[in-house]
Lab assay of single mutants.
Amino acid sequence: EPREEEAEKYIKRANGDYDKAQELAKKDGNEEIAEAIKEYKKR
């Protein structure tokens, strides 16, 4: 799923820090991806 791939990219950029990844996504205006990262975190 493209959303998950995007989320993974942010998580990698944030060195595995989900909260930081979420912030990066929000900064880029990717609210949807920020949500996907939140879902990811719950797994």
Rank of each mutant, 00 (worst) to 15 (best):
residue 10 Y to V: 04
residue 16 G to R: 03
residue 27 K to Y: 09
residue 8 E to K: 14
residue 40 Y to H: 12
residue 16 G to T: 01
residue 2 P to E: 13
residue 2 P to G: 14
residue 10 Y to D: 03
residue 22 Q to Y: 15
residue 37 I to Q: 00
residue 40 Y to C: 12
residue 32 E to Y: 10
residue 3 R to Q: 12
residue 25 A to M: 00
residue 26 K to V: 10
residue 4 E to W: 15
residue 40 Y to W: 08
residue 1 E to F: 14
residue 27 K to F: 10
residue 19 D to N: 09
residue 43 R to S: 10
residue 11 I to G: 01
residue 20 K to T: 06
residue 8 E to G: 05
residue 19 D to S: 06
residue 2 P to T: 15
residue 33 I to M: 07
residue 6 E to F: 06
residue 2 P to N: 15
residue 18 Y to L: 11
residue 22 Q to C: 13
residue 36 A to E: 06
residue 39 E to G: 05
residue 41 K to E: 08
residue 27 K to V: 08
residue 33 I to S: 03
residue 38 K to H: 07
residue 30 N to A: 09
residue 16 G to D: 03
residue 30 N to H: 13
residue 7 A to F: 11
residue 33 I to K: 02
residue 34 A to L: 09
residue 10 Y to E: 03
residue 42 K to Q: 11
residue 3 R to G: 12
residue 15 N to T: 03
residue 37 I to V: 04
residue 15 N to A: 07
residue 10 Y to S: 02
residue 19 D to P: 02
residue 41 K to V: 06
residue 40 Y to I: 15
residue 27 K to Q: 13
residue 6 E to Y: 06
residue 41 K to I: 08
residue 24 L to Q: 08
residue 11 I to V: 05
residue 2 P to Y: 14
residue 28 D to W: 02
residue 42 K to V: 06
residue 19 D to L: 09
residue 28 D to C: 03
residue 1 E to W: 14
residue 5 E to G: 12
residue 20 K to M: 12
residue 12 K to D: 09
residue 41 K to T: 05
residue 36 A to D: 05
residue 35 E to L: 11
residue 33 I to V: 13
residue 43 R to I: 11
residue 24 L to Y: 07
residue 26 K to W: 10
residue 42 K to A: 10
residue 11 I to Y: 02
residue 21 A to K: 00
residue 14 A to D: 00
residue 2 P to F: 14
residue 36 A to R: 11
residue 3 R to C: 12
residue 39 E to F: 04
residue 29 G to L: 04
residue 25 A to C: 04
residue 29 G to N: 06
residue 4 E to F: 15
residue 3 R to V: 13
residue 7 A to R: 04
residue 32 E to A: 12
residue 43 R to F: 08
residue 13 R to L: 15
residue 5 E to P: 09
residue 7 A to W: 12
residue 12 K to M: 08
residue 18 Y to K: 02
residue 2 P to I: 13
residue 35 E to R: 11
residue 26 K to Q: 10
residue 28 D to H: 04
residue 23 E to K: 06
residue 8 E to N: 07
residue 10 Y to M: 03
residue 5 E to A: 14
residue 31 E to C: 12
residue 34 A to E: 05
residue 17 D to S: 04
residue 37 I to Y: 00
residue 32 E to I: 09
residue 43 R to L: 12
residue 27 K to L: 15
residue 30 N to Q: 11
residue 35 E to K: 11
residue 25 A to V: 02
residue 17 D to F: 02
residue 3 R to N: 12
residue 1 E to T: 14
residue 4 E to I: 13
residue 12 K to T: 09
residue 19 D to G: 06
residue 2 P to L: 14
residue 10 Y to G: 03
residue 4 E to D: 14
residue 34 A to K: 02
residue 30 N to D: 04
residue 19 D to A: 09
residue 12 K to E: 13
residue 15 N to K: 10
residue 13 R to M: 15
residue 29 G to D: 05
residue 6 E to W: 10
residue 39 E to Q: 10
residue 15 N to G: 12
residue 14 A to C: 13
residue 20 K to R: 11
residue 32 E to T: 10
residue 6 E to C: 09
residue 4 E to T: 11
residue 11 I to N: 02
residue 34 A to N: 04
residue 10 Y to L: 04
residue 13 R to N: 09
residue 32 E to D: 13
residue 39 E to L: 06
residue 34 A to F: 05
residue 11 I to K: 01
residue 20 K to A: 10
residue 29 G to F: 04
residue 37 I to H: 00
residue 23 E to L: 09
residue 19 D to M: 06
residue 17 D to R: 02
residue 41 K to N: 04
residue 18 Y to N: 01
residue 18 Y to G: 01
residue 13 R to G: 05
residue 20 K to F: 12
residue 34 A to R: 03
residue 39 E to M: 07
residue 25 A to N: 00
residue 2 P to K: 14
residue 32 E to R: 12
residue 40 Y to N: 05
